[in-house]
Simulated scan of single mutants.
Amino acid sequence: MSKYLLNKFLYTVDRDPTLVERYREEPREMVTWWESTLANSVLNCHGGEASTWLAFTDEEREALIGHDHCKLFELGAHPFLTLTLFIAMFERDNTEPLEYQKAYGARMAHFSMPYPDIAT
């Protein structure tokens, strides 16, 4: 399990509107593509440098594909990263102000302290 890789995925996808749309519309293809092309790139590097060992576990991959922010939190993804990305993907589907954010919080309500470790 790599909390770093989960958070890197959420961070990089959230910063590119094209990737946000791909992740919303074709999550399985997007996660597979991202893992094979960007997972091992060095974050915020100008290219040419990469690692070779980073990969999602099956559990992480399925949580990303399923847009399951609760499972991602259990696995160590930072809730701020999931919230900002998922707002970009799903807020438009709601009609009331903060409707998506309230639903997100309600789905996370079953967590009690101590919360899962989100340190990377």
Rank of each mutant, 00 (worst) to 15 (best):
A106F: 15
P79K: 15
F73L: 11
E49P: 04
D14A: 15
L64E: 03
M108H: 11
S51K: 12
P27A: 06
G66Y: 03
F56G: 00
Y100G: 01
F73Q: 07
E99M: 07
M1G: 06
P97W: 03
R92F: 09
L54N: 05
R92S: 12
F111I: 02
L72G: 03
E59V: 10
E91N: 08
L10N: 01
M30S: 14
F9C: 01
A106G: 10
V13C: 09
H69S: 11
L98D: 13
E74K: 06
H67R: 02
R28Q: 14
K8N: 08
E26G: 04
K102W: 12
Q101N: 05
I65R: 02
T12V: 15
E49W: 14
G47V: 03
M1Y: 08
W53S: 14
M113A: 15
E60A: 04
T57L: 03
T82V: 08
G47Q: 08
E21C: 09
L64S: 04
I118C: 12
V31W: 13
C45Y: 15
S36D: 13
K3M: 07
A106L: 14
E59H: 03
T52P: 02
K3T: 04
Y23H: 06
T12S: 12
T82G: 02
N94D: 15
E62N: 05
H110N: 10
T12R: 11
L81M: 11
S51Y: 15
W34G: 04
A109Y: 14
A88Q: 12
L54T: 02
L43I: 13
E35N: 01
G105M: 12
L85A: 07
Y104L: 05
P17Y: 02
I65F: 10
Y11L: 11
P116G: 05
P116K: 01
T82H: 00
P17K: 02
H46K: 09
E29H: 11
W33S: 04
Y104T: 02
V13N: 05
Y4T: 04
R61F: 10
L6F: 04
M89Y: 09
M89N: 03
Y100N: 01
N94H: 14
W33D: 06
S36Y: 00
Y4N: 02
V20L: 09
G76F: 02
T32L: 13
R22G: 12
M108L: 14
P27F: 08
L85G: 04
T37Y: 11
F90I: 00
A50D: 13
L75Q: 00
I87V: 13
L98P: 01
L85P: 05
N7A: 05
R22E: 12
G48W: 08
